[in-house]
Design a protein around this nucleic acid. Structure first.
Lengths: 174, 174, 174, 174
DNA sequence: TTTT
DNA sequence: TTTT
């Protein structure tokens, strides 16, 4: 339960391959560096300015495993999560703070992208948090499950439909 | 699984008490009318303009029950969900479309608000989608569960097919 | 000014090329059909289910012009906007409702995509093509403001500098 | 312009009255501490757990002035903005990082709330980012303007600090 | 430091 | 039909 909303939405590119490690109990933890940048023309100078923001994103469990398997440096991703700031003391005894985004949802965007070819399919794996209606209808297992929420034991089975985005004109109701 | 993101975030006020009904299998379905409005001063006339948008929000299962119990006309709420457009044929045989927001998260905002005093506390029930870290690490039960996702055991009966959103003519566009 | 939040976030694919028309005063209006879909495995049947949601997105002004010029059928886009339901009377005299998303922000995602090979998309705008570190080599630029907000009079200058988004490993602060 | 999406949405309560200061050129800068908390029942112990997240929110220009005037400790607010991490050197010469949310939109929620009764008014000032349609069509002045976007002339000029990020391995708390 |  |  929460009193409040703490939500982050990112669309950006990975600056590196994800780093994945495992807890003693075997839970995967992935750390991603995601860049979002904005540029603008300076009013005075008329020069082009740019600022890149780097976000450290943490994923746990199945989501972390998928990230480790399919995400690669350069890949464009959609991330949804929440902010978590942690205080720690570095080895010099100095107190510091570090702010992460704990991901609850992830989707790979565009093609496989990535410098080195990226994970194959990819496409078939994007997913979003299941929404009420459909979930009702039988079950919502949605083979995918890139969501830190819906995870059961069965694994997200990164096989999948592939048929992403394929549609006929007639499908469109307007 | 989803290819794409279909997300709606609303902060608005209820125009009416929620309407709650039950499927054959006992799943609660709540329908809310949520108003968001914006106003501005017309450049030409200098007059105050206002436009109110009414949103039909559907909730299922536990979320619907909480809505039915604690939400009242006038109450301010945060809603997160997704868009779902349904086609139906009205009694005159005319094809129509109706767009709902299927809520996956809800939080009551501010005080009880509402014309008639609103439900008392409520407070204890607001919740947010659980976030990675905690969930993983054994914890995460969060007594409340205002979220259509996190439900385990009893569940809002993810059976209840069809009938979700099944419209009657009277249900139509506000 | 607004009392309330009315926000939609979509990541989906265009079902068609945008339709662009102009008001008497010369303002461009673009209409897009954006698909978001989710799929899941039915618990009972074990069969793959899929549901595609179609969203009608409206854009105005500069944003509409950019959409008309660079977006093509099949292309993946990020859309941010708000819901607007309009009542109208069709030619048979039947009252109907139509819910649109009025876009305030848009970003092209991934490569040009598109069923038919996606139009080149127009040099500078192919942006968002995450080729790892290669992105910077000529991708993304749209010098200006795909945002209905930031627009001044100067136009978004779809030419522009290019160098957006490139990064070396060293740039990453963690 | 942006390559990527960097968006934060918060609903939380102010831990203190906003701190407002002014740049040499007279632009207001407000700093807010916003709490979002979540609680849950621990599976093992059955005890109630709670975690509160504190967010530092920065506002510039008109938005900062409104915050300074109407927001008070305890008040519930909706904040929309983006993440910005800054590196700085504290007085002991230690390099530190600080992550802020730069607000682009704010709305006061619920009643005046707050320990000391809060400023009444408020209400009239909530606003949301203007949406395409109206803006285009000549209207859109919206007396309020709680939005960091719509600003023309002076601009808040957070003077692009450039110095984004830059961690050492030692800084990392895990 | 808030809120429930 | 709400809210300010």
């Amino acid at each position: 339960m929460a009193r409040g909303i703490n939500k982050v939405i990112l669309v950006g590119n990975l600056g590196n391959d994800p780093e994945v490690r495992y807890t003693g109990s075997g839970t995967a933890i992935a750390t991603l560096s995601v860049a979002t940048s904005e540029s603008w023309t300076d009013k005075q100078s008329g020069e082009r300015q740019e600022r890149t923001e780097w976000h450290r994103v943490k994923m746990f469990g199945k989501l972390a495993e998928i990230a480790g398997e399919y995400l690669k440096k350069g890949r464009q991703v959609y991330i949804e999560g929440s902010l978590r700031t942690e205080k720690y003391t570095d080895k010099s005894g100095v107190e510091k703070y570090s702010t992460d985004i704990v991901a609850s949802d992830m989707q790979m965007l565009g093609g496989p992208g990535g410098g080195e070819g990226g994970g194959s399919g990819g496409g078939g794996f994007q997913r979003e948090r299941p929404q009420g209606g459909q979930r009702q209808q039988g079950g919502g297992n949605y083979g995918g499950g890139y969501d830190n929420q819906a995870r059961g034991g069965s694994a997200p089975s990164p096989s999948a439909p592939a048929n992403t985005g394929g549609f006929e004109d007639d499908d469109i109701p307007f």
